[in-house]
Design a protein around this nucleic acid. Sequence first.
DNA 1: CAGAAGATTAGACAATGTCTAATCTGCGAC
DNA 2: GTCGCAGATTAGACATTGTCTAATCTTCTG
Lengths: 135, 135
Amino acid sequence: MKPDIVTILDEHGIQPSAQRVAVAEFVLSTTEHPSADRVWTGVQESFPMISRATVYNTLHLFVKKGLIRELHLAPDSVLFDSNIDRHHHFIDEETGRIYDIPWNQIEVNNMKTLRDFEIHDYQVVMRGRSRHPPG
Amino acid sequence: MKPDIVTILDEHGIQPSAQRVAVAEFVLSTTEHPSADRVWTGVQESFPMISRATVYNTLHLFVKKGLIRELHLAPDSVLFDSNIDRHHHFIDEETGRIYDIPWNQIEVNNMKTLRDFEIHDYQVVMRGRSRHPPG
DNA sequence: CAGAAGATTAGACAATGTCTAATCTGCGAC
DNA sequence: GTCGCAGATTAGACATTGTCTAATCTTCTG
């Protein structure tokens, strides 16, 4: 069990287990915003006997503990984002791929004029075409 | 078959039928961002024999023809928005209710610095608590 | 009226996500 | 150490959302 991953879990008040370390290792080392089932198949390569329910439980626990975030950007499934710094998202309409956009790259103003709403969080969601798709 | 609804369908290049008029009537007269199944049960009150497949087909057709828009904001289902003017969205984290925020209420700048992306569309998505929930 | 194109339908199917009840594991008290 | 218990994991059933298919029904056109 990787000690650094265990430390991260400890710091977030998550009791480490072999399964949780394997899930954390996978989800924290990708920038690809995987779905729960994608995480499941990915983790199975290093931990073949892990069950689907455990992956779902674990991801939800990680979200509750603030280790990762849940995204609702795609029609078919919830995605998970290991980047917990504030940032925006760009969705490539052709590939469905999701890109993180640094917080400071976009300036958003006038939010305080929304007197009827107490805003806990916000982000800009963009759709379009990526000019330089990676890989 | 309501003549005004038929006109709207015609204007969008949609062949009117009794079912399509019933779906349009429902979805164009609510600001509640219903899911497809919510539209189905809602339309059944005025058109009891409409099938689920027809509602799904019809909603997708409406989206393709630009009569309504599809939203991916909730974890469990796609929502439909009859407001096709540009606007932002606020999601009440307690109720899940979604509110439209007028386009001019929020100022977004610096988007042109995103040279790697060709942006076709964008919106600000906010989460929090509504101070004055309606009805 | 006949043929064709388009619309509707029921129900099968698929994918995603939740739940349950049983089992397993590991930590703390002794 | 080991006993017991809380917490973690599991397989598989279940629910919901959405898609697909093949048959039927409508409507438009000639």
